[in-house]
Design a protein around this nucleic acid. Structure first.
Lengths: 222, 222
DNA sequence: TCCCGCGTGTCACGTTCATGTCGCGTTCAG
DNA sequence: CTGAACGCGACATGAACGTGACACGCGGGA
C-alpha cells in the first residue's frame, strides 16, 4: 500500500511518514499544495493524508481538483480542532475522514487502515484467504492459526494481494504500490518476493497468470 | 481487440501500451501525427487513444481527416486539463471521449473498455453467449458458472467473437484484430486457436461457416 | 571499531508453458 | 471421386517464470 502525505510542517510530515512506514506502508511526502496535487494526479496512491493549511495551494482546493478530475482514492484530512467550518467544507469537497490536530498517531494509523480497507471493499481489520489471516492492527500473519514471520516487503506484498484478492495484479502494478517513486522497474524482484512469500504461506495460494501477473484466492479449481 | 496509441511522449506511449496489453488488447504505437494518421487509415483498429499535442500533424487534424475519410472507430482523446477549448473542438471533430492529463491508467482502461463495448453495441461489462460469460473488468471467463483458464490469445479470440456474436468473422479479420502489424498471415494459427478455445468452452459454441469463417452464437441455424 | 545477522536486490540457470508450425486424417462441395 | 477447407494431435522453440546463490548495506551487539 502506498500513501501520500501532504503536510507543510516538516517535523509533522516526517513523523507521519515514519509512523506509516513502520505500519507497513510505502510513503511519499509533499510539502506544499502544488506538489501534493501533482503527485496525487500522477501516482497511484491507496490513500492520502492531507493537511488543510498548505502553502501555494490549500488542501481543500487540492482535494476539489482531484475529485473533479475523477481521482477517487480515499483522503484523510488533518484539521485544527476549532475549525469546524473546514470540516464541513471538507465533506463537501469529497474527503473520507478527519482527524483534528493535535492528534495521536495511533488514531491516524487506525483511520488510514480503515480507509484503505473500505476502498478495497473490506469491513474488518482481519483479511483472510483460505488458511491465511492477516491482522492489520497488529501487523501479524497466521497460516492455519500458526503465526509466521514476514519481512516488511513480504508483508506489504501479502497485504496488497489480500486487499485485492480475486483480481489479477500485474508486476507493474505491484512495483508501483510496493515501492516509491524512483525504482528500477526492470528486474525480477517481484518474482523473487512472490517466491519467498509462497514458501511461507503455501505455494498454492498465489496463482500465476502467465503474461499478466498474479492472483490470490478465487482459484476455485484448476 | 486492437488499439492504436498515438502519443509523442515515448515514456507515456510505452506506459499506455503496456497497460492496454496487460488488459488483453493488441497495441500499435505511433509517435507523431503523420504516422498515426497513416496507421489509422490503413489498419482496422477497434479503438484509438489519441494525444492532441503531436509533432508533424496535430491530433485534431488527424481525427478530422479520419472522420472525413469515413473512419468510424471510437477515439479517446488525451488533453491537458486546462485546454477546455480543445475539448470542445474535439467533440466537434468527432471524438468519443476524453481524459485529462495527467490521468490514472485505470481511468483510461475503463474508458477504452466502454468505447469498445459501445462500438460493438453492448451496454454491460459482462459479455455472455449461452453458458459462456466473460467479465471484461476482471478478465475472467466462466462456463455455466465454473471459471475456466484461458491463455491471453484464447482470451482475445473469445472476446472478439463475443463482441461480434451472431456475425460471421473471417480468418483474415481475426488475424488483423488479434495480432499487430507484422504477422505472417499464411498459417493455420487461427484454426488451431479456435480448436483450443472450443475444447475449453464447448465445441458447439463456435460454428464453422465453410469458406467464410466462424460465428459465435445466434446458431439458430443458417 | 569490528563482526555478525538479516533483509534486499541481482544474477544465472533450470523449468514450465503458450504459441506457431507441420503433417495427416476428416469433412464437404461440386 | 477429387480437391480444397478444416480439425487435431504432436512437436520445437523461445519467452516467461521459478529458484538457489551471492553481494551489498545497514543496524545491533560485543
Amino acid at each position: 500500500m502506498r500513501i501520500l502525505v501532504v503536510e507543510d510542517d516538516a517535523d509533522l510530515n516526517r513523523q507521519l511518514a515514519t509512523a506509516l512506514e513502520e505500519a507497513g506502508y510505502v510513503v511519499d511526502s509533499a510539502a506544499d499544495g502544488e506538489e501534493g496535487h501533482f503527485l496525487g494526479d500522477t501516482e497511484p496512491y491507496d490513500a492520502v493524508v492531507l493537511d488543510l493549511g498548505l502553502p501555494k495551494l490549500d488542501g481543500l482546493s487540492v482535494l476539489e481538483n482531484w475529485r473533479r478530475d475523477g481521482r477517487t482514492m480515499p483522503v484523510l484530512i488533518l484539521t485544527a480542532r476549532d475549525r469546524w467550518s473546514d470540516k464541513v467544507a471538507g465533506i463537501d469537497a469529497g474527503a473520507d475522514d478527519y482527524v483534528a490536530k493535535p492528534f495521536h498517531m495511533e488514531e491516524v494509523l487506525a483511520r488510514v487502515r480503515a480507509l484503505v480497507r473500505r476502498a478495497a471493499g473490506h469491513a474488518s481489520n482481519d483479511l483472510t484467504c483460505g488458511d491465511v489471516r492477516l491482522d492489520l492492527r497488529a501487523g501479524r500473519v497466521t497460516v492455519a492459526g500458526a503465526p509466521i514471520k514476514l519481512t516488511s516487503h513480504e508483508y506489504r506484498l501479502l497485504s496488497y494481494l489480500l486487499h485485492h484478492q480475486g483480481k489479477v495484479i500485474s508486476r507493474t502494478e505491484l512495483t508501483e504500490h510496493l515501492y516509491d517513486q524512483d525504482f528500477d522497474r526492470d528486474s525480477n524482484t517481484v518474482e523473487v518476493f512472490v517466491g519467498r512469500l509462497r514458501k511461507k504461506i503455501g505455494s498454492d495460494m498465489i496463482e500465476t497468470i502467465r503474461g499478466l501477473g498474479y492472483r490470490l484466492g478465487a482459484s476455485v479449481d484448476q
